[in-house]
Structure formats: C-alpha cells, structure tokens
C-alpha cells in the first residue's frame, strides 16, 4: 500500500522512468492555464502523498543513497534532453522535470517536507509562468518554436523580457528562490555529491543559452505583432519579485 502510494508520488513528483507519465500528462493538456495549474498542483500532491503515506520511515538507509543517485541521474537526463529542445513548452517541461527530480534528493537526504515543498514551488512557479507565456507566444506566432525567426526581442520586447527573466528564475540564477533552495538543501550533503551535481547548472545554463540566442539576437523579418500587455508583464514581474521576497524573508522553512 505504502509502496503503491510511493509510486504514485513518483509519477506526480516526476522521477525517471515514471516521469514519462508526468510529461505525457502535461503535453496532453490544452496548454496555458491548465498546464500552469497542473505543474504547480501535481508535485505538491505528490509531496502530500509522501507525507500521508509515512513512506519515509519505511525506506532503508542504503536505499537513500541509491535513490539519491537515481534522482541525480534523472535530473541530468532531463537537463541533457532540454538542450536540443526548441519549443518553449517542451523546454520548460524538461527543465522542470530536471529540477523536480532533485526534490527527491532533498527529501531522501532528510530535509523536512515543508522545505521540499518550497523546493518544488521554487521550480514550479517559474515553470507555470513559462507555460502561460508559451500560450501567449503561440497565440501570436502560431507556435512557440524558437530559432525560425531571430530577434524576437525587436518585435515583442515585453514578451521576450518576461521569457528571459522567467527562464532565469527557473534556471536557479542567484536572487531567485531556486538558487537558494538548492543551496540550502544541498549544503547538508557530503562533499562527494558535489561533482555529481555540478554538471547540472552547466547543462541548465547551456540549454538556456541556446534558448536566448534565438530570442535575442538576429534580424527580425516577420510581421509586426502585438506585444504582451503592460499589466500582464508587470504582474509576472510582481509574482517573481514576490517569490524572491518571500524566499529571502520567509527564511524559516529550513532547519
């Protein structure tokens, strides 16, 4: 019983190979708000399941080590796949799966569940925003595939700026919550874990770099498009700023 709940949790809080189901679920949703809600709610549901099932008591210590390694592997795998993703939705999905896999590592290394919940939120909130922005881009361009048309920043300055800032938040750039949660959670880990974790920022950065290249550089040769509304982009900025603020001052989620 406990284990089946655990498996369900592994679907909702994606861990390879069950993360496949999570990703399929996300792709099958009609995009925009539904995806955004799903990406926030589902991992939290998964974490609640973990708490409810008290599975933590049943996990033997050796499994913690292997489980942690497996989580890192899962994360690296998704980060690697994100490098070739050109479509914003797919890129987001892969990166958030990569980040959420690390939540397992945090949980297995003994962080309190509340911390892990914040951990998950730190990745899921920017991802949700990105899904919304993907929908906005699709409405304007017909698809959110980057790289066909360079220099989108010229035609859609506010949308591009929002994309860039939100992507940086998802990536774990310092000042954004994802960075601090990573810092806090893995500060406890023994030193041997560090070389395993270091490729992650590298891969995330690489994927984001390619992403930005297509957004920001080049000549724009397409139709003029209506940009994101001022209110909307201000709202997005507010959400990110709020998350930052909460993170810096809410502080007491950790031990």
């Amino acid at each position: 019983m406990v284990w089946s709940l655990g498996l369900l949790a592994a679907i909702l809080l994606p861990l390879f190979p069950l993360s496949w189901a999570f990703n399929r679920l996300l792709t099958s949703l009609p995009g925009g708000w539904s995806q955004a809600l799903a990406v926030i709610v589902l991992p939290q549901a998964g974490l609640e399941l973990l708490r409810f099932s008290h599975i933590a008591h049943h996990v033997p210590p050796s499994w913690r080590l292997y489980g942690g390694l497996w989580a890192v592997f899962s994360s690296l795998l998704y980060a690697f796949r994100a490098i070739t993703a050109r479509e914003v939705g797919i890129w987001t999905r892969l990166l958030v799966s990569s980040g959420l896999a690390l939540a397992w590592l945090a949980w297995l290394s003994g962080a309190p569940l509340a911390t892990v919940q914040v951990f998950a939120l730190a990745f899921c909130v920017p991802a949700a925003l990105l899904f919304l922005l993907t929908a906005a881009l699709t409405r304007r361009m017909g698809g959110a595939y980057l790289g066909l048309q360079g220099g989108l920043v010229v035609a859609l300055p506010r949308l591009s700026a929002s994309l860039v800032v939100t992507a940086l938040a998802l990536l774990g750039t310092p000042l954004f919550p994802a960075f601090f949660v990573l810092w806090r959670s893995f500060g406890q880990l023994p030193l041997a874990w560090v070389p395993l974790l270091m490729p992650l920022p590298l891969l995330w950065g690489w994927a984001t770099g390619r992403f930005f290249q297509d957004l920001l550089y080049g000549d724009f040769r397409g139709e003029p498009m209506t940009d994101l509304g001022r209110m909307t982009s201000a709202l997005i900025g507010l959400v990110l700023f709020a998350s930052l603020f909460l993170n810096l001052f809410g502080g007491g989620f950790g031990a």
Partner: peptide, 13 residues
C-alpha cells in the same frame, strides 16, 4: 531554412 509555419515546426522536427 526557417520558413516553416511555427505551429508545425515541432511536429516536423
């Protein structure tokens, strides 16, 4: 060549 309709790009890829 970058001429594809953006909505079809992912499918084509």
């Amino acid at each position: 060549g970058g001429a594809i309709l953006p909505g079809w790009a992912q499918r084509a890829e």
